[in-house]
Nucleic acid binder design. Structure first.
Lengths: 346, 346
DNA sequence: GTGAAAGCGCTAACAG
DNA sequence: CTGTTAGCGCTTTCAC
């Protein structure tokens, strides 16, 4: 029963290979009676077409690659990527595509593996996690001619397609919320400033400040790396400046900040308030629960696939750009949910 | 420059297709001079062999599949799976295999997708995450004849290969540690008892108790689902029984237990001690830092790939069984690190 | 609506 | 050590 071929099915059904192929691929030009008979036999035998043969003949593998570059690959354990991956996987399932995952660990990986990924006959298209400037994966991809879409706006303003979240507006509304609560001395822990996510959230922070007639104070702005540990150390340093509130560019970093604040013996939100970004599940379970900017991570993954399939079908011109809005989720860490507005500071 | 074929390279080098093929595949029977010439041309032209064609001709795709069944797929965001995936990906990179990821979300996914995965020409072998009894993926795989290895001992005692961690001994040493600290009324939050990980850790718990001449009290044992929320609710209920210590079957659940204990206003470890399992990065950053059983998750992933490749090369008989040891990591939550041994209870 | 025939680009005997 | 020769199992014109 193993390894039946089209030919076998054709013989069993008393038709030609082409006809069986048409049935399998849902081509119109097959009479109903023949179609039924063939389907019957396929069902009985459990026949499955060989995908390698199909790829070779049709020049499409029905595989898409999800590429996580080295610079963010160690963050793969951060809940962000698994969620994104879930979205991507789900969309692939629904579209009958197979998902291949490429995690680069070392610089060598990138050098050695990238050519491998771009080999003809492997993937039809690629979803690339956006990353810092230098590494040139985007350029390599552009040159290779493989259709691709980027998760997150890339640094270079070039003719590429991407799906992103409106980080600027998200951060802006987080900080405006703090200002509305009466906080004036707001510090921020940024993401890596060689990433657009890091930069844009800082930009939103600055805009909110300036629109509130507050000065941007470099002492109150520390760059970190989206990790818990990074958030911890940045918050520790920031605390020395006696801020009354924090905008932390990710929930994971906010967890680190929480730890730093706890160790400093400060009460949240009474002595220091906090708003972060992502709305991962931990946000609602932190102590206190985090006020944060929700971004639709999983849906981002789904949209990435949809966009890539669109490109596969209709070409990569013009480049697609999709930007999702965000949402402020108010919990305890910002102080807005306190019963009495006892906070009255400078 | 796109889409060069073997033939093109052969012509450019003035040799036959076979020779070029030999060079590419590092076959011995090629003279050095010819090999050099061919390599030179390949390098100049940037030629890459077509993988679909290679798969078809060689009957090997060089792709391995990582399958996460529906029942654990929603746990994919738990740090455990990303870490495992990282290990698997890393090993794949090093062995020149491509990793395909199959996340099942719904029951339909399993029905529809499994046949798809088992199609000839797609993957050479599969790594399957172990899961509860019923779903029969293992059986399907066995029948399909696809080489596979299971992550975690499966429920059915059949002739399959797996890589696992010694959950029994791990849990055993966790609980013995608590007993040595003087705790006598030890409660446990178990994993799902339709998984071997859940069962084995409970088994270790029981063994440690009986070896310490402590009775197993059903009131002090609550099953949960490896999630933070599950740990939270289970701990809440357990707390009603006034235990003096907890063994929690995973770090993630321990986080939930921490939350429950905090809300109950109890001090850790003075009023209740806690040991968990996994040693995820969060364990050391929890408040207080968790004493826990470390398991080598990433290395598990690497070993899974190695085992699968071994099977691919040498056949699946006899079934391979690899079991990793664990390690007790003592931090604050168990009370062993307190300066004064002020605890003196029943 | 159906079949014949020509590949897709590679690997792998088999000769020499 | 190298070239010739068959395929691998499917898709896809092109006739009929």
């Amino acid at each position: 029963m193993q390894n039946l071929t089209l030919e076998d099915i054709a013989q069993l059904a008393g038709v030609s290979r082409s006809t069986v192929s048409r049935v399998i691929n849902d081509h119109p030009n097959v009479s109903d009676s023949v179609r039924q008979r063939v389907l019957e036999i396929i069902h009985q035998t459990g026949y499955q077409p060989n995908l390698a043969a199909r790829s070779l003949a049709s020049q499409r593998s029905n595989i898409i690659g999800l590429v996580i570059p080295r610079s963010v690959s160690n963050l793969f354990i951060d809940p962000y990527f698994p969620r994104l991956t879930q979205g991507v996987a789900q969309a692939c399932n629904e579209s009958n595509y197979t998902l291949s995952l490429f995690l680069f660990h070392t610089k060598e990986d990138e050098h050695n593996l990238f050519p491998r990924i771009s080999r003809p006959g492997l993937v039809d298209g690629i979803i690339l996690q956006s990353t810092n400037v230098g590494d040139g994966l985007v350029q390599q991809l552009s040159q290779s001619g493989i259709p691709f879409v980027i998760a997150g706006r890339p640094m270079e303003v070039s003719e590429v397609s991407y799906v992103d979240v409106d980080n600027i507006t998200g951060a802006y509304s987080a900080v405006r919320h703090l200002v509305h609560q009466g906080y004036r001395r707001i510090g921020t822990v940024t993401g890596p400033l060689n990433s657009t996510a890091g930069l844009d959230r800082l930009e939103g922070f600055k805009r909110a400040l300036s629109e509130s007639n507050l000065d941007f104070d470099e002492q109150l702005c520390i760059e970190a790396d989206f990790t818990e540990g990074g958030g911890y150390y940045a918050a520790q340093r920031l605390l020395l400046q006696k801020p009354d509130a924090f905008f932390i560019a990710s929930d994971t970093m906010a967890l680190g900040a929480l730890r730093a604040i706890r160790e400093a013996g400060l009460a949240i939100p009474d002595e220091i308030a906090l708003v972060s970004f992502d709305d991962l599940p931990i946000a609602s379970r932190a102590n206190p629960p985090l006020t944060t900017i929700r971004q639709p991570i999983r849906y981002l993954g789904i949209k990435l696939v949809e966009t890539l399939l669109d490109i596969l079908e209709n070409g990569s011109n013009p480049p697609r750009r999709v930007v999702f809005g965000t949402q402020l989720v108010i919990r305890e860490s910002c102080g807005a949910n306190r019963s009495a507005p006892e906070r009255l500071r400078s």
